[in-house]
Amino acid sequence: MLPVAGWDTMTPVSFLLLIEDDDAIRTGLELALTRQGHRVAAAASGEEGLRLFKEQRPDLIVLDVMLPGIDGFEVCRRIRRTDQLPIILLTARSDDIDVVVGLESGADDYVVKPVQPRVLDARIRAVLRRGERESSDSAAYGGLVIDRSAMTVTKDGQDLQLTPTELRLLLELSRRPGQALSRQQLLRLVWEHDYLGDSRLVDACVQRLRAKVEDVPSAPTLIRTVRGVGYRLDPPV
């Protein structure tokens, strides 16, 4: 084991589950992520990953798309049925259909192989930060109530299960009601991506969020699209 050095000991150790079928990549990423200060459990297949996920309840999952047996998208969908923990996809390329399918399956972010451990670590930390609470007020949009102190969202009194990313997106939009935010702005605010962020992350997350908060997701009344600009949260009427 390499000596652990150079990371902020104040940061609580996060527990990651790495699901990757290639032995070399799995070992390499496990070493690198451990060194970045995370606790890492590794699985070599989707089935093993789901089993480890149920047994060990990690804080975040790093998931390879191309897996033998049940693939990364299916793993993602199965986890999303019950849990809202952050999922980061490991994908082959940034411009192919994998990214779109992966984001539609419920992933929060993706990185492209070969990934620099520093980049992956930055993404992991950014995703984990989204669940942190910051203010202590609440806002109501029709039947939708966003409680910023408890970090919960209820719709008609029912608790909504939102992933940290979805929650953060809703919070950022609700902080500026009626004001349109561009995809690039949202990428900076929610994903902490730089100028090269992928706007499909925003689109996919908005879709998932609408499916949960809108009465009719195909005819949204809360999260509106502003053509040529981005999205805005309409204040309650």
Binding site: A5, D22, L29, L31, A32, A92, P117
Partner: peptide
Amino acid sequence: SHELRTPLTAMTAVTDILEDE
């Protein structure tokens, strides 16, 4: 290039460690 990438991903994962040390 696709085949080359798999070992490269593993190698890239540990280069940061080697560089730090």
